[in-house]
């Protein structure tokens, strides 16, 4: 085990993939000379050369589309998009091509593509760099979506995304990059589509992922001090959803709280609640609750930004409400 940041863990997995598979290359804006907008790929250009680490012009739609075409052509590109907000410029390629071509061609076209992007708020980057739109991608059949929350998962889920024959979207929360943890650098791919229980508990199931996991765990600690024993499930994969793991926990705790940095309206949290209600309704002792971002474009000012996002305090209050009524 080595103590690594989340950023270093992603970089380690990238290095391992790029160095070992001749079909692989990384492409995106400023992934090379600059070292990546969030310094994830720092040093890889010098180490691996320009055929493996390709700086693109600023043209999200076309470099994502070129990644799709290269994957169809037998290469194994890993595309980095600076932030999820910028990925909207590539949404046509992602939804109309990456997600669609296999089915629309009757199963002929394979798109083994990985797209990584930063997501989430908390760095005062305002409304064009701070949104959490994972649920837009998780809405679409034909893709898989992961949101690693820990350094070990940052490595293992990226390896899994790469090994998968489908288009896989990897969401890395901007606040996760400096997180430190013990990482097994010899580990293999984690299974996609499997949630994991990060904290056992008997009275409440808190479901979180990505950048919300540390908040959910801190909230569970605070609730424990109040005598509320909360389990925390790290979803890890957002499509397909691991309803089995969520359902098993909810059947035991009889209560559900979902933390989602996206907006509540049309959120993934809403989907999770709906699926739980559809499948384990009669095991519930209380209405499920959601802590989501407030319905505003994420603002710049620190106090406003903090007020817009799910906080430990809001999660604690919501958890208390679900358990105590």
């Amino acid at each position: 085990m080595t103590r690594l940041t989340y950023r270093e863990a992603v970089r380690g997995a990238l290095r391992q993939i790029l160095a070992s598979d001749p079909r692989a290359f990384l492409l995106g804006e400023d992934v090379g000379k600059y070292g990546g907008a969030y310094a994830v790929s720092k040093g890889l250009l010098a180490e691996l050369g320009p055929a493996k680490v390709r700086d693109t012009p600023l043209c999200e739609s076309t470099f994502v589309g070129a990644g799709i075409g290269a994957a169809i052509g037998g290469a194994r590109p890993i595309v980095e998009v600076m932030t999820v907000n910028f990925s909207l410029l590539a949404l046509d390629q992602i939804v109309n091509n990456a997600a669609t071509l296999r089915h629309m061609s009757g199963g002929q076209v394979a798109v083994p593509l990985v797209v990584r992007m930063a997501t989430g708020a908390g760095r005062q980057l305002a409304a064009q760099h701070s949104h959490s739109l994972e649920n837009w991608y998780a809405h679409v059949p034909g893709v898989k979506v992961v949101a690693p929350a820990t350094p070990q998962d940052a490595r293992d889920l990226l390896l899994a995304a790469y090994a998968d024959p489908n288009p896989v979207f990897v969401f890395e929360h901007v606040l996760s990059y400096p997180l430190e943890g013990e990482v097994d650098e010899t580990s293999g791919a984690a299974p996609l589509g499997r949630a994991i229980v990060r904290r056992a508990g008997t009275q409440l199931t808190i479901v979180a992922w990505g950048g919300s996991l540390p908040k959910a765990l801190a909230a569970a600690e605070a609730l424990a001090a109040e005598g509320v024993d909360a389990a925390v499930i790290d979803l890890r994969t957002l499509r397909p959803l691991d309803l089995e793991a969520i359902g098993a926990s909810v059947r035991a705790t009889r209560r559900l709280l979902v933390v989602d940095e996206g907006w509540k309206t049309g959120s993934l949290a809403g989907e999770i609640v709906a699926q739980v209600v559809e499948t384990v309704f009669f095991d519930l002792d209380a209405p499920p609750a959601r802590v989501c971002s407030r319905e505003v474009p994420i603002p710049y000012a620190a106090h406003l930004e903090a007020a817009a996002l799910p906080s430990v305090e809001r999660i604690v209050a919501a958890g208390r409400g679900v358990v105590r009524g």
Partner: peptide, 29 residues
């Protein structure tokens, strides 16, 4: 796909990046 006929694209302009990618794969490999 066997004949390397990669479709049939109905988003105007949307096929061009994919074609660039197919050429990128050939070049890379």
């Amino acid at each position: 796909v066997e004949r390397r006929f990669h479709g049939g694209h109905a988003i105007v302009g949307g096929g061009l990046p994919v074609a660039v990618g197919l050429a990128l794969a050939d070049t890379h490999l």
